[in-house]
Amino acid sequence: MAVALETINLVKRFSGIVASNNVSLQIAKGARHALIGPNGAGKTTLINLLTGVQRPTGGRILLDGEDITSLSTHERVRLGIVRTFQINQLFNDLTPLETIGLAVSERRGQGLDWWRIVGSRPDLVAEVVEILERFHLADVIDKRTAVLPYGKQRLLEIALAIACRPRVLLLDEPAAGVPEDERHEILAAVAALPADVTVLLIEHDMDIVFSFADRISVLVNGALFVEGSPEEVARDPRVKAVYLGEEVADA
């Protein structure tokens, strides 16, 4: 099994609290890997560590065997680790056309071009339009992002990550907050992601997890708890206990 992304004994402490506890995770190339766990299990911290938003207290992160622990966020993006956000992080004053254009020109290394007017490269624009059409955004390409319906913003969130041509895509609850009748559009977009892209999905909704993932890791209290195929995880009594425990605690 070729490993795309790997963490070795990853530790993150915040003034006394251990948010990631010795996490050693392997994500296979082309995998549809889901990361689940109760609230506060450290899923978001792990994403932040993987993308370089936060620095680990200890441990290493490897991409295709190369150590990327000390690289900054944007350097990792250039190497192919791209994420989406649970809460939309978009450019409210830009249009989807401009937003995707940004990501594409950045990926092509043309983001520093200051002498060239935006939109003067037909091949670049073609790629942008292709992405927008694929994510059902063609009808709103000239609207300000802030005024788009929530479902469209959610699609743009994913489209923006795809425009970076990720090798490893970290999806943080892609369908979070999307009304029931718009959900299928998001899920279809997630299901249609290119097969060669490795996907790590963070999700609360078990229907989505079990319909999408071919491998599942369960995170509890910052540590890796159980890992296996969906069937194995579904059958595991310990996982049930954790989730039941959470439900009891919630009630």
Partner: peptide, 19 residues
């Protein structure tokens, strides 16, 4: 230019710009 557009993105949402 693309550079100018990227400035607006940095101003609007630096977290996503770096992402």
């Amino acid at each position: 230019s693309p550079f100018g557009l990227s400035l607006l993105s940095v101003k609007g949402n630096p977290l996503r710009a770096s992402a």
